[in-house]
Design a protein around this nucleic acid. Structure first.
Lengths: 218, 218, 218, 218
DNA sequence: TATGAATGAGATTTCATTCAT
DNA sequence: GATGAATGAAATCTCATTCAT
């Protein structure tokens, strides 16, 4: 599941199931990296800055990570695992498809608002060519697609979602809007509550912008 | 309008209205830069690569651009001017608000499909922190907002667009979806026709994903 | 006292009281720089030449010095401290004002003869406009002035030195002559003993070139 | 006499005895160079800056000067010729040796005060190792020595100057003091009248700093 | 394991000089 | 003769990575 278990066996061997202080170092580096990457972007960040922020020596980072790229890769792997577990939970906690979608969007905005460093790194890397985290992003994209597809299919069965939709596009339609909302929020320096965008966004997703006499309500 | 006309007067003075072979050096560098930036990202690109691609010496670049950042800035300024002129045209060529929006989306997808380097650079820079082209991107964002707002207001007056929408969010909703569609297309290596996404997207924009008995058609 | 202790704490922390082989790297770079600066002048010298002469990698220099300018600044700070301590000693070891002055001149010539690289760098920088070591040179100038002024005042009190002298000019008169003597010696490729100029110079300082029936002897 | 007559025959051929507008360009470049060299130092100055200041194209400079070094060389040759002619005049206009020396010092200070750019360039180059103008400076030094020697010998014959002096040292004694006075004046930003230093300096030269019952007066 | 000094490849930028016009 | 765009060598400085301790 995580390719790095194999690449750095000596460093990662104890990383699972071991609660000693070294394990903590791995996490500290990852958090420090997130902060620095978010502040400066991946290429502008230096190992020294990350090491200093994490409170370790430069060389120590190479005990836990193969190289600079690998920090980003592991960061994405970790976040993907964490976040998608919570996304899944959110979806599962809804009863109807519309409620499931609403919960997903809300959790999505909420998690990114809670962890702006992750949000910044995610948004930036997601739109880079030749990305180091290509594989991770494809995995994420697929997981998101599966979540949305599951909701849509349920909705199509119970008649609340239109049947003639191309699901691949629906995913982009939703993910793109949400990401853009997050991006705008980040560039506004977080001056409003991002998760409050849930209902307005849901309204647009479900009803669109067009005007018709009688409509569903959320 | 273009601040760089003043920064490099001796080099740019003849840039308009002169058809000698020097005239195109500026353009060649800009095109080369777009290609390299698109392939590697701004920070991974080197002046040497750009120079070689443009067929000039490294030093020559500094006759036309203040520094590496300035290449990106001028690239954005140029593209913004060009593209938005065409976006405006597209909007103006529509009769109804829905038609205007459809023309805008179509032109948007079309232009980015036609110039994938621009698309890649735009998508990447748009989501970076501490971006060199902050000003250019804010300008672009504002222009896009104005275009969309104009259409929406017209639609609200003639009753085809819902009145209770928050326009700031609608812009993100549309721009985010379109950009994500472009992004997906780019990462698919351009294996399908991007502009054919226009109508499916418009359908989602106007009607949303929700199911209702009677609906508008495009 | 030395601002650079603060600028590069990690590199300089162990600089005092530690005798491992790293300790001398700072000194080796400084000596190498003195040699190269002396041979070529500050602006013609390159970091690579200094690094090669010091036997370190180019990048290593930046562990010990902020930038190229900083090498010169630290060089001057170090030399000023060392040399003026010895100048002070020389002055203190004389009993009469004339003896003090003689000891100062002798020590001055002696130290510069002993360290010709320092002499060359000092003479060159002392007469440059926009000098990087402006502050250091003003400090040195002030210290020299204080030494001379102290001697002169004593001499004026005991009647061996004329009372109507403008001390600011006397300092230039002495320092200028001595520096010019050093300069001439340097450009003669050191083919004679510089410190042997002490008594002839003292004779000129005390008695001048004019002829009078009865005079002091040194 | 001027080696550059041979190096650049085509450019210099008409430079003597020709009063066309091109001759003027040569002078303008030399003056521009003096200003830029004085402001920034030789190595910090660029051909472009000189060209712009002189109001000519960069390439034009190479029609009049072999290369950047050659500008400095010709500058020194010109100034040496001009200034020493005036120094000689000053010496000749004095009746007694002491008067001659006084006139020389006064003219020296006066000319350098009148042309601070020359002063700055002269002082800087005079104390550089491997100097491009080595030959010019040796010529100047020799001329100055000859002037001083002539005065001294006359003074020794008429009894106003001590006989036991080492003339080589006397020259450095005088030149060094005068140059240091000029240097101090330059670094004070010209806030006082440099040529007023003549008599105080002469007093030090003739009588020294030592105290004796009966003395010459100037 | 942990450290952090050292390395040196590589990036940006400058500028003396050339040469086609 | 005069121009100034073009060149490309060379300089400074950064930083991912290594390795002796």
């Amino acid at each position: 599941m995580n390719e790095h278990s194999f690449i750095l066996p000596s460093a990662r061997r104890w990383a699972i199931g071991d609660r000693n202080k070294n394990n903590d170092k791995y996490k500290r580096i990852l958090e420090a990296a997130a902060k620095i990457f978010a502040d400066l972007g991946f290429h502008q960040s230096t190992i020294s800055q990350i090491a200093k922020t994490a409170g370790v020596a430069d060389g120590t980072i190479y005990l836990y990570f193969k190289n600079k790229d690998d920090i980003l890769v592991q960061f994405f792997s970790d976040k993907t695992r964490q976040v998608f577990h919570r996304f899944k939970e959110a979806v599962d906690s809804g009863d109807t498809p519309v409620e499931k979608l609403r919960n997903l969007i809300h959790r999505h905005l909420w998690e990114f608002q809670r962890d702006p460093n992750m949000a910044i790194v995610y948004l930036a890397e997601t739109r880079r060519k030749n990305r180091v985290v290509e594989k991770q992003i494809r995995t994420m994209s697929k997981m998101y697609f599966d979540l949305v597809a599951e909701i849509m299919e349920q909705g199509q069965q119970d008649g609340t979602i239109r049947r003639e939709l191309y699901l691949g596009l629906v995913k982009r339609f939703i993910l793109g809007s949400v990401d853009e909302a997050i991006n705008t929020w980040l560039h506004s320096e977080g001056q409003y509550d991002l998760s409050s965008m849930t209902d307005p966004l849901m309204d647009l997703f479900i009803r669109g912008i067009g005007n018709t006499p009688s409509r569903n309500t959320l």
